[in-house]
Amino acid sequence: MDLSQESAKKIAALQSKLDKKLGPEYISQRPGPGGGPKLTYAEGWKIINLANEVFGFNGWSSNIVSLTTDFIDQNEQSQRYTVGVTAIVRVTLRDGVFHEDVGYGMLENSKSKGGALDKCKKEAVTDAIKRTLRNFGNLLGNCLYDKQYAQEVVKIKVPPVSYRELLLICTITSLFSN
């Protein structure tokens, strides 16, 4: 494939960004299933914001390839629902390059079947978007699959940002983006 020098430079710059690893400010932890070891993950909104930063808000898109309700179980005694949903999502970059991956959402012991389905669908789609974006590189979450990196990065303490600091950052960012 013949690329212009300008295109090659843009691709190299993008690849350089994507090769970097997530900083501790993007990483969260929660208890594992059944009280097992903590799981290290990045929240969906953080990864989506990062994808907007890397590719531009109009440099990528996602679409749901499939959304399947795997099961809806109702406990006869409690009248509560347990629901599982699978989503396959495609993320496409402006140049047509794309990846697809699967995500899952599950909710146990819900009072409402509709509410459980709604939550599970959103969770499955968000999970699929995150899993798909990680295919583009470390910066979009793939580095979290490196167990040694994940163990070390969570040890780095990130000071919380105050509302005043956040407002200042937003103001400065908007001044320089115009």
Score class of each variant (00 low, 15 high):
Ser4Trp: 00
Glu6Asp: 12
Glu6Ala: 11
Glu6Tyr: 06
Ser7Val: 05
Lys9His: 04
Gln15Thr: 08
Gln15Trp: 03
Leu18Gly: 07
Lys20Pro: 07
Lys21Val: 10
Glu25Asn: 08
Gly32Phe: 02
Pro33Trp: 03
Gly34Asn: 11
Pro37Trp: 03
Lys38Pro: 15
Leu39Asn: 04
Thr40Cys: 04
Tyr41Lys: 00
Tyr41Arg: 03
Ala42Trp: 01
Trp45Tyr: 10
Trp45Asn: 11
Trp45Phe: 09
Ala51Glu: 09
Asn52Thr: 08
Glu53Thr: 14
Phe55Met: 01
Gly56Ile: 08
Thr68Trp: 09
Thr69Pro: 01
Asp70Met: 06
Tyr81Lys: 00
Val83Leu: 02
Arg90Ala: 15
Arg94Phe: 09
Asp95Glu: 09
Val97Gly: 02
Val97Trp: 03
Ser110Arg: 04
Ser112Asn: 07
Gly114Pro: 08
Cys120Met: 02
Lys121Tyr: 08
Ala124Gln: 08
Val125Ala: 05
Thr126Cys: 03
Thr126Glu: 00
Ile129Glu: 04
Thr132Tyr: 13
Leu133Tyr: 02
Leu133Glu: 01
Arg134Leu: 04
Gly137Phe: 06
Asn138Lys: 14
Gln148Glu: 13
Gln148Ala: 15
Val158Phe: 10
Val158Ile: 12
Pro160Ile: 10
Val161Asp: 06
Ser162His: 05
Arg164Phe: 04
Glu165Phe: 02
Ser177Gln: 09
